[in-house]
């Protein structure tokens, strides 16, 4: 499996050539996106995919921190997304702040609450490893969802000024649609930069060392459980942020959107993109969000084709054929 090396060469300043190229690229992609959207070159179907793509990138990149860099399998990422989505939406439904400020605050609140849950869950469960951790995180995702189902959420005022309480199972409605392509783009880029910077710092180094050999990490004075929890909290925070953004894309949101299937999908992005490869996660998140839509042409066969592609890709990734192809190239 491919793993990016951290800190291969530390450039001395922020204003180095590589960063300038990245900045130019970021702006260029934004202009391209703006042109495509504003001039309606992208059809409605594709425009509606911009927010899910951004949210999926954020989810994939943050999960990659846990799975690719720290080396722990988590199947509960959708749970943190749900926490972010619901706290963020409840906040915007019940506050009267001006739009932009409200949205930014919602993003922060959603992220922080999700991060807090990441901490509460991470401290006990990160003692477990491998498949056990996987099933326990999946369990937590489901617990979060059933708790959301059973809570009554204050969701704004009715015309008479009385606060409306909505049962969680009914989902939330009337959510302000704040997520447009500019905001999602900014949030996604910030997420990627923050995570790349973390990966290239001492934190990234420590995560990789724990992944490669936790016992050796302990032996050189690294408090493994502490850094596992830190990683988990960072990932939960960004999953929460992705949730807030996702929630403010449609007026209606149901808890069923955040079940374990979504966690699995996020994991699929990470694994197909390559564990420990941020670029891979981004590409996989984009392709696998767009692919099912492309396959919509073949409507009823699309998920079937998707599943066959998934199996095929995993087998190909681990086949002799691939190794031969790579050798030929080199």
């Amino acid at each position: 499996m491919k793993k990016e090396n951290t800190n291969k060469n530390i450039s001395k300043k922020v204003t180095n050539k590589k960063n300038i190229v990245s900045l130019v690229l970021i702006i260029a992609v934004y202009i391209l996106l703006a042109v495509l959207v504003e001039n309606k070159i992208l059809n409605r179907q594709f425009r509606s995919m911009i927010v899910p793509i951004g949210a999926n990138i954020m989810l994939a990149v943050s999960l990659n921190l846990v799975t690719g860099f720290l080396g722990e399998l988590s199947l509960g990422h959708a749970g943190f997304m749900a926490i972010g989505a619901f706290t963020g939406a409840v906040f915007t439904l019940n506050s009267n702040l001006p739009g932009l400020l409200e949205f930014i605050l919602a993003i922060l609140i959603g992220g922080i609450v999700a991060g807090l849950f990441g901490f509460l869950i991470g401290v006990p469960v990160l003692r477990l490893k491998g498949d056990y951790l996987a099933i326990v995180t999946l369990g937590f995702g489901e617990i979060i969802r059933s708790i959301i189902n059973s809570i009554n959420f204050p969701s704004g005022l009715d015309p008479e000024g009385v606060r409306i309480m909505r049962k969680g199972t009914m989902g939330l409605t009337g959510i302000e649609i704040y997520s447009n392509y500019t905001w999602i783009y900014i949030a996604t880029v910030i997420t990627i930069i923050v995570i790349v910077n973390i990966v290239n710092s001492r934190f990234g180094r420590i995560m990789c060392s724990i992944r490669d050999n936790d016992i050796a990490s302990e032996s050189i004075g690294i408090n493994v459980s502490k850094y596992k929890v830190i990683t988990f909290v960072i990932a939960a925070f960004f999953a929460g942020v992705a949730g807030v953004i996702y929630a403010h894309n449609f007026a209606i949101m149901m808890p069923t959107e955040f079940d374990y299937n979504r966690s699995i999908n996020i994991l699929v992005f990470v694994v197909l993109g390559g564990m420990g490869s941020i670029r891979g996660s981004i590409i996989a998140a984009i392709l696998l969000t767009v692919l099912p839509e492309f396959l919509r042409e073949t409507s009823q066969y699309r998920m079937l084709i998707y599943s066959i592609l998934l199996i095929g890709m995993m087998i190909f990734n681990n086949s002799d054929l691939k190794h031969k192809l790579i050798k030929k190239k080199a």
Binding site: I264, L272, I311, M314, N318
Partner: peptide
């Protein structure tokens, strides 16, 4: 996938489930 990483096998199994 006998010799592949456990995660690849898990994803394949998920693929089979979807299928």
């Amino acid at each position: 996938l006998r010799k592949a990483a456990p995660l690849s096998v898990l994803i394949t199994a998920i693929g089979v489930s979807f299928f």
